[in-house]
Design a binder for these strands. Structure first.
Lengths: 340, 340
DNA sequence: CTCTGGCACTCGACTGTAGCGAGTGCCAGT
DNA sequence: ACTGGCACTCGCTACAGTCGAGTGCCAGAG
């Protein structure tokens, strides 16, 4: 395990060159392009050690070296300093996001921005309902037996659902229902509403029990079970950039994975205390994504985290740059959310 | 232009074989696989004519023939009878769509269903707001200077938008506003609301003029300008099926085109009286899609058309099957919309 | 006039061989 | 511990040769 500083420098150089050129890198080219201060032969010896330890490998004998997933991991963990964005980039982000009129708009702009800046596939989760608080519940009578339930969360997210009532309900009763529901639920975090929703049924006037029961069913369904998580995606065209060298020739599995909301949620939705997460190749739990890397992070107003965002690209990607971009975009979106 | 029946039969056979095998088809193979009742030599002569007329071509000398866009066009127009779906398929469609709880759900299910049945990229436009009627307008007070405007269309589509008022408004006034707006606009087709919205400002009480002005601005924006058209997409992974033989090796342009909502709308949104439209290769106005074909149609409750749907695939696709599927799915969705 | 069988021809796909060169591993020397 | 040198490996490219599917054309039969 003895990896002295120079061996690490060699690994860093290999990663940087390979990411830039997409071609296996040999000892001679390395000493030419980086000031390592030693001869190719020495580098070769270091390479042999690095290969033995599993950080790099040769596609075939008599070819240069290529980093392995493990090599990238070491690079990310110990060898790369996050490169700060240029002021121009920061301003671009700010300006682009500032134009948003709407939560939907914010999410759309964010995902496009991420895709464009990183030149990769971007994924943004809508602010999770479970992590939001109820700002207001609205009941709109459509007919005597139909209500439109509109849930407005403090993150600005709005969800609606049609409710089919078991029996006709008078307009005054709708007002009644609305008041009761709002009194009990406004300000509560959505993930904690289920018990309260149960209690609602008992508390309301007897002749409204039926209506309230279906209403609360739909409420629970909307808030907790279904739909709950929405996702925006952009930049899939970037997958086809690397001339099929990345992703070992077939985009099929990647595209398939990206079509599954569940998969995407798994990718970026598991938000932990740690600010930012990088999953490299094999580290991905999803089989279809074994040839890809994912950089993801949570975002939200202030320290609260309401959702995740991230990008997906070939394992051979510019980690420092991507990490910096994802982090910066997430921070700006968080500020934007906090303002409103 | 003398294309007798046999030449047409040859063309049909070529198209069918090529679609099935993805390989240039030669004269010998043709007579073996189809009962044409003539010798290869005769077929060759017919092929020479077909080639001269531009319906087929040779990738290189001494290779079989491949249909041109023009050949596919002729095939679609005159040589293919729409093959009816099997009862099993019909039932599958019905069952799958029947489970939908929601307009959103209907659209999502539809697009996935289309992608799955045709094994191609599916696109479904949400019921266009411009073509819907207003069922209800709701104003939800968020704070004294903020309203949430919710527009509910008769197609079940719901659109919401935050309104920042120029000055605080009392709760009673909100009720007033809501009543006025609903009285004037409910039942009106959205594309015809603009003049009425203008009139609203004049009619309302003086102390509400300011509020009504911003409100109507947002209303117009929401209904007409922005956002208005939404699109669902599925099955992009199917693009990567044909092993890069379709789409001349690069998915890039296709994926790029699919990312642009505007492009997608152009693809399937131009709904005309004609029931179903097939655009083959070069016939596509969008440059990036010159290597693809699009089968699209309008849908809606009864004879009204509220949106478009369709699929996109390689020019080498099973036109009869795809056409039948798209038509059937559109019809079922129409019925579903009519029921509610 | 139409169809057919025959024949020469074309040209892409595949195979085998050879030379080149990037890159390596090893070793002896400083 | 580093370096220069050297033999070796092996993928890549070019080139020649063969094979065969498929064609176009033509003369002859119906």
């Amino acid at each position: 395990m003895g990896l002295d500083d120079r061996k690490l420098a060699v690994l860093r150089a290999i990663v940087e060159d390979y990411v830039a050129t997409q071609e296996p890198v040999g000892s001679k080219a390395l000493v030419e392009r980086h000031q390592l201060g030693v001869s190719p032969a020495t580098v070769r010896n270091d390479m042999a050690v690095l290969e033995e330890e599993g950080y790099i490998r040769q596609p075939h004998t008599s070819a240069g070296r290529v980093p392995t997933d493990r090599g990238y991991r070491l690079f990310v963990d110990r060898l790369s300093r996050v490169k700060p964005l240029s002021p121009a980039e920061r301003r671009a982000i700010e300006r682009f996001l500032a134009g948003a009129v709407d939560l939907d708009d914010v999410v759309h702009r964010t995902v496009r921005l991420l895709a464009q800046l990183t030149r990769q596939v971007a994924v943004v989760q809508y602010p999770s309902l479970a992590r939001s608080r109820v700002r207001h519940l609205e009941l709109v009578p459509i007919s005597t037996t139909r209500l439109m339930l509109v849930v407005i969360a403090d993150t600005g997210r709005v969800e609606q659902r049609l409710v089919e009532l078991p029996a006709p309900v008078h307009a005054d009763d709708v007002i009644d229902l609305r008041r009761t529901v709002n009194e009990k639920l406004v300000g509560i975090q959505l993930s904690e509403t289920p018990p309260l929703v149960q209690a609602l049924i008992d508390e309301c006037a007897t002749h409204l029990r039926g209506a309230m029961t279906t209403l609360s069913t739909v409420l629970l369904e909307t808030l907790v079970e279904r739909h709950e998580e929405r996702i925006a995606l952009a930049g899939t065209a970037n997958l086809a950039r690397g001339g099929l060298l990345d992703f070992q020739g077939s985009l099929r599995p990647i595209l398939e994975a990206l079509e599954e909301e569940v998969v995407l949620l798994k990718l970026i939705g598991e938000v932990e205390p740690s600010t930012l997460r990088v999953r490299i190749g094999d580290e991905n739990e999803i089989d279809n994504l074994r040839a890809a890397s994912v950089v993801s992070t949570g975002y939200g107003p202030g320290a609260v985290i309401v959702g995740g965002m991230g990008v997906l690209g070939p394992t051979r990607m510019d980690y420092p740059g991507t990490i910096a971009t994802v982090r910066a975009v997430a921070r700006y979106v968080g500020e934007l959310l906090a303002q409103n």
